[in-house]
Design a protein around this nucleic acid. Structure first.
Lengths: 215, 215
DNA sequence: TTTGCTTAATCAATCGTTTGATTAAATTTG
DNA sequence: CAAATTTAATCAAACGATTGATTAAGCAAA
């Protein structure tokens, strides 16, 4: 009973997450979601109060800052700023590519400024994550191991933006890369490694001081 | 008469572009658009046939490849691959920041794969532009002036993705940068210069070979 | 008069939500 | 234990509101 209820709620949330991410909030009707989840329409309101309530629930199940994951790395005094950044990138890319459909949803709905409740919460969490990356890079700049004139705020935009570009428009990314970005297995293995390698090399060559640095 | 009609159509298109980009296609009702444009609702269908027709018209007015802008640069034999890339970045950023609200619309609706007609057209155009950038970078790799193992496809993702991150979620970007990204004047002046400087330095340090290159 | 533009009124369809009835399990009562 | 009562889950049906679209009449200009 308890179990079945939890199962059904989870099934609804799974379907809702997928349908929302495919059709957008407005494009996804409660009838379609309930239909695909094989539950009566009224169950959505019974469990979640409203369509917006369901939307919020989809987020609350998944969204949480991984500040707690990043903190021990950032606080580790044995690691150089660059080593910290490397590990943060690894953790971030791992998490993103596993939940790519969810992050697609996040990015689309956050560009619409509605759903005040959800939006504010997500904005806060995204900001926390962004600021963690910024903090690590600032540390590198401050201790002189990173390029002093580095635009670390735009570096944050690059880290998140490069990922978004692949995730948000998979059919474009597929054509660009010549790979099937819709394939979850490809994302979690080959793409995962490729993005990590690329992000680190890109940022290292920009941030980490070697010798000459002409404009 | 001719003039007034054109004016009215343009006014509708201006409003539609803004409302679509603020609310999304599904979130924007024809009543709201016609209301804000101060025209009768039926005028939308009279001029554009349908809501989707209006949507298409919004795109057709603005979307076109700037391959023609890039071609003379790419074809110029007096320019090195890096010099070509620099100029392409300049042109690209100029164009994007002027039409930021439109590109926000493009990016959201392309992540939803509906509107087959528009989507296919936009995808093609975006691909053309992406492939132009890729071509320039490939040239640099081929002639040995660029890092041979450079992941130029992900470089494309970085160029477009970094821009999207700023444009798509301006309220997040505003908090990250400590600036008002909604301010069109700021975008077209300060942000414009800052993004150009950053993109060039970032890509140059990654692509252009200087001396050592350890992982 | 004919043509092109404009309007208010109206259309069927779909939206998210609510309802009241039904079922089954859990709990209380005798 | 058995009977009575409460609670939770589920459903088909219907609600009012809003959607995009159409109509037919009115209007102005050529």
């Amino acid at each position: 009973m308890e179990k079945e209820k939890a199962d059904k709620k989870d099934r609804i949330l799974d379907v809702a997450e997928r349908v929302f991410s495919e059709m957008g909030y407005d494009g996804a009707s409660t009838r379609l979601i309930s239909g695909e989840a094989n539950v009566n329409m009224a169950m959505l309101n019974y469990y979640f109060g409203s369509k917006e309530g369901l939307f919020v629930a989809v987020f609350e199940r998944k969204i949480y800052s991984f500040k707690t994951l990043l903190q021990p790395i950032i606080g580790d005094e044995n690691l150089s700023p660059w080593e910290k950044l490397e590990r943060c990138i690894d953790i971030y890319i791992d998490r993103i590519l596993i939940n790519s459909c969810f992050h697609k949803l996040v990015n689309r709905e956050i560009s619409l400024n509605r759903h005040g409740e959800v939006n504010d919460k997500i904005t806060d969490i995204l900001m926390v994550n962004a600021l963690e990356f910024k903090k690590v890079m600032q540390e590198g700049v401050d201790n002189g191991s990173f390029f002093e004139a580095a635009d670390i705020e735009l570096c944050v935009a690059t880290i998140f933006g490069t990922k978004n570009y692949i995730i948000n428009a998979p059919h474009i990314a597929s054509r660009l890369l010549g790979k099937d970005v819709f394939d979850q297995h490809f994302l979690e293995t080959e793409m995962n490694q490729r993005m990590k390698t690329y992000m680190k090399r890109l940022l290292k060559s920009y941030l980490v001081i070697t010798n000459d640095r002409t404009n």
